[in-house]
Design a protein around this nucleic acid. Structure first.
Length: 417
RNA sequence: GGAGGGUUGCCCGAGUGGCCAAAGGGAGCAGACUGUAAAUCUGCCGGCUAUGCCUUCGAUGGUUCGAAUCCAUCACCCUCCA
């Protein structure tokens, strides 16, 4: 029989960072039963395999699942391969495009690969909701739909808004929360996790379980993480959600150096929110760090702890160590990194102008951008700042160049003669 | 089915025949200041080995010496009526 840590200990970890909790008392009871019987809780989270590029924002939820796993419970990773084709309009103004079966399957694989960097593979039950949804007979669908009223559906914010404004709500959209809720019925899960934007859908699941004679699941939501550009205003974290389009994300597949740098650029105070939502450090440990910062410990040092933890999670310990060392070298000591790539450029005719060479070496996207950077003082050649974009590089010569400041790029440019 | 409004650079948004590579704001980038970040100030912000040339204002075709601006067709979006 499996043994679990004391319930209050489990609760303390599990409720960290949680926004909606229906209900804490239920979870406490369920944890007690689990501990007494040795039965792990079944903790479900559903994923729409539509966004194969995960960033830290997505991992908040995965991290919460991981916490359950670490306590001995089972994570049910549910791929909404059927519901993805229905398309949930949550957070969107219009219904999402429906996806083809092949596209869904491909995305699911990519998603999993990345998710397993956070989840403990050995405690995952991987399911796809096509398994049971596809088997539903029409009379069962009717039965499912009969369990929920239109007015309850219209309680959901985006439905209410759209109805109010006379915008289209297609009938299949009502099906989405029902099917997602039915997943919980089919899986008989104890807990369902989701982002705060999923609250309605999760509660539909809780409701439906009761109506199907099952013990209703506990619902917990985690916040949508802000981007690396978030700030603190009046003691509250403000800023856009982390997203690729806002370019304020740290992607889980990004190279170690980039991850580390971006993590270091998080605001001194905001980093504690990142700690709470993403770190595997204990709450007590994080609070200690906060006190230390208040007492004068360098915020750089504290952020480096976070940056390193993240890099290690996605790239392993050696990569974390190396990224930290390189950051220190390049940004704190303003030195040249160990592994500067060597690039060769071949001028076709005439001379090799600096701006042109920077473009050739792929250090900048366009020659114009290179000219701007150089004339604004953002480029160093062999350790000295230059200001003339037309500076001639000698054929046969090799130059060490540094471009940019926040995101420093280096290269040894060799001009072929 | 009918009537009207719209589509401008990464985003928002001005511009109704030459002074438009296109105001203003946001984002972004660089410099100064720093602790990396924030704040503040300054500058930049289509492309091109570049004192010039090329391509942009939904798409195509036209009018004109000259079009983001006028005309025609098409596509998409929105509002009102039925």
């Amino acid at each position: 029989m499996q043994s679990f840590p004391p319930v209050d200990e489990q609760l303390a970890l599990l409720e960290r960072g949680v926004v909606d909790f229906h209900t804490r008392a239920d979870l406490e009871r369920r944890l007690e039963q689990s501990r007494a019987s040795g039965r792990p809780l079944r903790v479900k989270a559903g994923f729409d395999p539509t966004r194969p590029d995960l960033h830290l924002g997505h991992t908040v939820l995965l991290q919460k699942m991981r916490q359950f796993q670490d306590l001995g419970h089972t994570a049910i990773f549910l791929i909404g391969d059927f519901t993805a084709m229905v398309g949930d309009p949550t957070g969107q103004n219009e219904s999402r495009p429906r996806l083809s079966r092949e596209a869904v399957e491909a995305s699911a694989q990519t998603y999993l690969e990345q998710a397993f960097k956070v989840l403990d593979r050995s405690r995952v039950e991987l399911r796809r909701n096509r398994e049971w949804i596809e088997r539903l007979a029409m009379d069962e669908v009717v039965e499912l739909m009969a369990k929920f009223t239109v007015s309850r559906m219209l309680e959901r914010n985006d439905f209410a808004e759209r109805f109010e404004q006379g915008r289209a709500i297609h009938q299949h959209e009502f099906l989405y929360p029902l099917l997602q809720g039915y997943d919980s019925v089919a899986l008989e899960c104890d807990v369902e996790l989701g982002g705060t934007d999923q609250l309605f859908n999760l509660l539909v699941g809780r409701d439906l379980m009761g109506k199907y004679g099952k013990t209703p699941q506990i619902v917990m939501t985690v916040p949508l993480l802000e981007g690396t550009d978030a700030r603190i205003e009046n003691g509250v974290v403000v800023g856009k959600k982390m997203s690729k389009s806002a370019d304020n994300y740290i992607g889980v597949q990004e190279p170690p150096k980039a991850m580390f740098r971006k993590a270091m650029q998080i605001d001194d105070d905001v980093v504690f929110r990142f700690f709470r939502l993403l770190s595997r450090r204990s709450t007590a440990e994080i609070e200690t760090l906060e006190r230390e910062k208040a007492a004068g410990r360098s915020p750089l040092e504290i952020k480096a702890l976070f940056a390193r933890e993240i890099v290690e999670r996605f790239h392993g310990a050696p990569a974390g160590e190396q990224a930290a060392r390189e950051y220190e070298l390049v940004y704190a000591r303003d030195a040249v990194p160990e592994d500067v790539p060597r690039v060769e450029v071949a001028p076709e005719e005439g001379i090799a102008e600096l701006a042109w060479a920077l473009k050739q070496a792929n250090l900048v996207p366009t020659t114009s951008e290179a000219r701007r950077l150089v004339s604004q003082g953002g480029v160093e050649v062999d350790g000295a700042r230059v200001s003339d974009p037309r500076m001639a590089l000698a054929r046969g010569g090799e130059y060490l160049v540094r471009v940019g400041s926040k995101n420093r790029r280096f290269a040894r440019i060799r001009v072929l003669g």
